[in-house]
Amino acid sequence: MKLSVLDLAPVIAPADPAAALEQAAVLAQTAERLGYARYWVAEHHDMPGLACTAPEVLLAHIGARTQRIRLGSGALLLPHYKPMKVAESFHMLATLYPGRIDLGIGRAPGGSAHAAIALSGNFLGNVSRMPETLQALMDFLHQRYTYEDQPVTARPLPAEPPQVWLLGTNTKSAAFAAQHGAGYVFGHFMSDADGAETIAAYREQFQPAAHMAEPKAMLAIAAICAETEEEAKRLAAESQSWFRLPSEQNMPQGSGRLLTGTPDSLRVQLESLGRICHADEYLIVSPVPDYEKRLRSYELLAALK
């Protein structure tokens, strides 16, 4: 079972944002030690409970404090940005940390309507241009971009470009991923669907590319693991009360699909989901509102690999 970590960089009282970012680095180092495949960090804006506004900056810091684990965004919210700048940032990361960088892309606003407008103006208009923006980004990442018939290069050029993934919860995002030969991550913890239909559509439509010859699918799962079922349920209750705060105060809404249990019971749950959805990997966020217990959850989950 291939497992990876998704971190929202939560600011858990009495920690301040600086302490929360230090805990992000500790989680990445722990994930590397435990043999997780990837450490990804999300992007959200103007949420006091989260310290993940700039994934590329945090990943640069964490890359210097780890050695092997792949690092990526889960997800960088592409409608807010110009494709060349995104390609330059992730080319820089891939040059600093060869063979370790993933560029996970999403198209959600990542915050309130007012925050989205402050960040990039007409967000809905930007989303409507997502096909063109994504195509330009892929062209920059693979040195195909031209403007007025003149090549434009997003430098520095790494020896190995970032591996591109699209994150979503519907067949539209799956189709984008398939069209561009990218990996696909289904946001199980953000959706009422199990993802089987969406991932199947991705696999059926996948167009092989030089950078990814075969489809690769992940499930993004919310899971809390503990030594006993009772402890897992107790932590889940704490997590649910924390999750259900208004989105502008803490975590995003829509996080009700939380798996809980011991390593043995979670293995059964994850294997069942994997069979239904034909997933190659699980990207796990463990939303425990206590840093030490969150680490313990990931330590226990590592036994599933």
Rank of each mutant, 00 (worst) to 15 (best):
158 P>N: 07
54 A>L: 03
147 Y>M: 08
71 L>H: 04
176 F>E: 09
102 D>Y: 08
145 Y>A: 09
71 L>Q: 08
164 V>Y: 05
149 D>M: 02
43 E>M: 01
171 T>Y: 00
163 Q>Y: 04
78 L>E: 13
91 H>G: 03
76 L>S: 10
75 A>T: 08
108 A>S: 15
132 E>M: 10
52 C>S: 15
117 I>M: 12
74 G>L: 05
80 H>G: 12
164 V>Q: 12
75 A>W: 05
144 R>E: 15
111 G>N: 08
79 P>V: 15
120 S>M: 10
150 Q>L: 14
81 Y>M: 11
143 Q>M: 11
104 G>T: 10
111 G>K: 11
103 L>W: 07
85 K>V: 09
169 T>L: 09
121 G>K: 05
179 Q>T: 15
58 L>G: 00
155 R>D: 05
123 F>D: 11
132 E>P: 00
113 A>G: 07
103 L>N: 08
40 W>S: 01
72 G>F: 06
138 M>D: 10
161 P>W: 05
165 W>D: 06
110 G>I: 08
45 H>F: 14
126 N>R: 14
170 N>R: 12
109 P>A: 14
136 A>G: 01
67 Q>I: 00
118 A>S: 12
128 S>Y: 02
107 R>M: 12
76 L>Q: 10
180 H>A: 06
106 G>S: 08
63 G>P: 02
50 L>H: 07
47 M>K: 15
164 V>D: 04
136 A>V: 01
77 L>Q: 15
172 K>S: 09
36 Y>G: 04
76 L>G: 06
128 S>K: 15
165 W>T: 00
57 V>K: 02
108 A>H: 11
105 I>V: 13
114 H>Y: 09
93 L>F: 06
51 A>R: 02
148 E>A: 08
53 T>F: 01
46 D>N: 13
157 L>C: 00
123 F>L: 13
64 A>D: 11
144 R>A: 14
84 M>S: 09
123 F>A: 09
72 G>M: 07
62 I>H: 02
165 W>I: 04
45 H>C: 03
48 P>A: 13
181 G>R: 07
138 M>L: 14
66 T>M: 06
111 G>M: 05
127 V>T: 13
128 S>T: 14
175 A>N: 03
97 Y>T: 02
107 R>P: 01
119 L>R: 15
36 Y>C: 07
127 V>E: 12
177 A>Q: 04
109 P>K: 13
